[in-house]
Amino acid sequence: MITWRRLTHADFPLVARWLAAPHVHRWWYHEHTPEAVERDFGTAARGEEPGEDWLVSLDGAPIGLMQRCRVSDYAEDFDQLSAVVPTPKDAMTLDYLIGDVANTGRGIGSAMIRWAVERTWVDYPDASVILIPIVAANRASWRALEKAGATRIASADLEPENPVDEPLHHIYRFARPEG
């Protein structure tokens, strides 16, 4: 069973270890020193910013991290995304990682995404859509989105997180279910 809870400062050593793992660091191009993890995740853990960081567990064991926010809460992201696809003010976005490489390629990412999408519809009843831009080179990530039911709606050049990446991103969409 997949569950999640808000990330706390006590989780930062685990997050640092995950961010240092080559399969994560390639796509989550973050520093992973204690100071950097505090800088990058501390404000959300303290509730000082609108973005949410969640520790995801599978059968009680931490397996990954999920970030969730309204795209419009981050003006630069909103401007960049809305320049290429219709982006309503209520649009949400997700970002995610699987911490241990042994848990990749097993369908856990798709299950984690599906679960987060379902929770988002409950937690944000006014959200009409979830938009997720993924650097095109990250095939495993966009395949997980497709397996979770997302639809690719566009491909466009966006600023990559990792400077080694080309700017091409695929933009995926989950629409709120009817009814």
Rank of each mutant, 00 (worst) to 15 (best):
L94H: 01
C69F: 13
M92C: 07
R114I: 04
W142L: 09
G105T: 07
A150G: 08
A136V: 09
T93A: 11
P133A: 12
A91F: 06
K147D: 10
D95R: 08
P125D: 02
E49L: 11
E146C: 13
D53T: 07
D100I: 02
Y124F: 14
D157I: 05
I130L: 06
G51Y: 08
L158T: 05
A91H: 04
P163R: 05
G149Q: 09
D100M: 04
C69T: 10
G105M: 07
A154L: 10
R46W: 05
Q80R: 13
A127H: 01
K89H: 12
F78C: 07
Q67N: 14
S72T: 09
A154S: 13
V71C: 06
G64N: 03
V85H: 07
P160M: 09
V122I: 14
V101D: 10
E76H: 14
V71L: 13
W54Y: 13
D77H: 14
A61V: 13
S82P: 04
G51S: 14
M112S: 08
D95M: 06
V117M: 03
V84G: 03
A136F: 15
G99Q: 04
T151K: 15
R119D: 14
W54F: 15
T151A: 15
L94M: 03
G60F: 10
I63H: 05
L55K: 00
E48D: 12
E49N: 11
W54H: 10
W115Q: 11
W142A: 06
P163W: 04
T87A: 10
I63P: 01
G109N: 04
I108K: 04
L94R: 00
A116R: 00
C69M: 13
A83G: 12
R106K: 15
S72P: 05
Y74R: 15
A75F: 12
R46N: 07
E52A: 10
G60H: 11
E118M: 12
V129G: 02
S57D: 11
D73L: 04
D126H: 08
I108Q: 09
T104S: 07
G99H: 03
W142C: 06
S72N: 11
P133F: 08
C69A: 14
L94Y: 00
D90Q: 04
